[in-house]
Every structure is written in structure tokens, then in C-alpha cells.
């Protein structure tokens, strides 16, 4: 279904629930995996994903069609992720390393993580990056978004995103070499 048709359904009271159900089914996987890669834990990712869709439901009337629906949803998910990580650091008064340690431990203890040693090593290297840089890396490397799409989502310039990604790759490779 085209975004235009979906939005029409979402804005009409009679078809709102139906339209929303389609929206969740269409975007749930992409949004969940985007969040999951940032917060690592399934339960946290599940909570945030649900929050994202509830926010979308609340503010769908405010969505202006100057952006694509997908990028708008992706942006909400990104903000929710960053807010979650920020709250986590603030709530426990943890230094950056401790949150990284907590997320890193989840990579080995969570029942829903099953990578080989190299994959886990890559994930641990990613956790060493600042949250925003990790986000940029995930969008480019795993989600394979174009820089233009990423710029639309993050409202950052393409040049800044390219620099951030290449910097992240270098840091990860340095980590992989040193370990």
C-alpha cells in the first residue's frame, strides 16, 4: 500500500484502526531491528518499539507529507533509542563505560543473541562507539541506507554522516586489530 493511501486510512476515523494495523505490520520489523541493534536487549527493544508505534498513532495527524512516512517513523525510533540510552546513563549515574559493560554483558547472557566469536567481537567494538556514531554505522552498514536517507532521518548533512561512518569504521578496525 502506498504511503498516501495508508495515511488516508489513518486519518479517517472509520479506517484508522485498520490503517494503523497495516502500518505496524509494514514497519515493525525494520523498526524493531533498528532499535534492537542499539539497545541489544530484546525486552528493551520490545518496549521501545511499542512506544514508537504509540507515538506514531498519537501524532500521525501532525505528520506533514514533506518527508516520507518511512523516514519519519525511522526518525521517531532513532530519537526514542537515543533517549532510552541517555536515560539509562542518567538513571544509574553510570559512567559511559558501565553502560557499555552492561550492554556488552547482554551480548553473552541474552537468550536471543546467537553470534559466533567474530560477530560478537564486532558488536563489542560497536559498543565502544558513541551512541550517535553507532547509530550512523548501523544505518549504513547493517540497514544499508543511502547517505541521503540517513541525512533525512538524522537531519544531518551527508558530509558529516560520511565522516562519521568512516571514523567509526576506523575505530572498529583498530579495535579488531588490537584485541
Amino acid at each position: 500500500m502506498e504511503d498516501k493511501d495508508l495515511l488516508e486510512k489513518l486519518r479517517h476515523p472509520d479506517s484508522r484502526n485498520f490503517g494503523f494495523n497495516i502500518l505496524v505490520r509494514t514497519y515493525q520489523q525494520r523498526i524493531y531491528w533498528h532499535i534492537r541493534k542499539m539497545v541489544i536487549d530484546h525486552d528493551d527493544a520490545d518496549d521501545i518499539t511499542q512506544e514508537v508505534f504509540i507515538k506514531i498513532h498519537k501524532s500521525i495527524d501532525a505528520f506533514r507529507q514533506d518527508a516520507r512516512l518511512y523516514t519519519w517513523i525511522y526518525r521517531i525510533a532513532t530519537n526514542e533509542c537515543l533517549n532510552f540510552l541517555r536515560r539509562k546513563k542518567r538513571r544509574f549515574f553510570l559512567p559511559l563505560g558501565d553502560v557499555e559493560g552492561e550492554l556488552s554483558a547482554k551480548l553473552t547472557t541474552s537468550p536471543y543473541v546467537s553470534g559466533d566469536e567474530v560477530q560478537l567481537k564486532l558488536q563489542k567494538a560497536l559498543l565502544k562507539l558513541p551512541d550517535k556514531q553507532r547509530l550512523v554505522f548501523n544505518m549504513k552498514y547493517f540497514d544499508e541506507l543511502s547517505y541521503d536517507e540517513m541525512a533525512e532521518i538524522t537531519r544531518t548533512s551527508v558530509g558529516a554522516l560520511k565522516a562519521s561512518y568512516h571514523h567509526a569504521v576506523k575505530k572498529i578496525e583498530d579495535f579488531l586489530k588490537s584485541d
Binding site: Y32, K37, H42, Y112, V113, G115, D116
Partner: peptide, 10 residues
């Protein structure tokens, strides 16, 4: 490093 999904869901 091969790109692989290491996370899963219930």
C-alpha cells in the same frame, strides 16, 4: 567479517 544477524526474537 560476514554480515550476519546475530539477534533473534521469541
Amino acid at each position: 567479517i560476514p554480515k550476519k544477524q546475530i539477534f533473534s526474537v521469541p
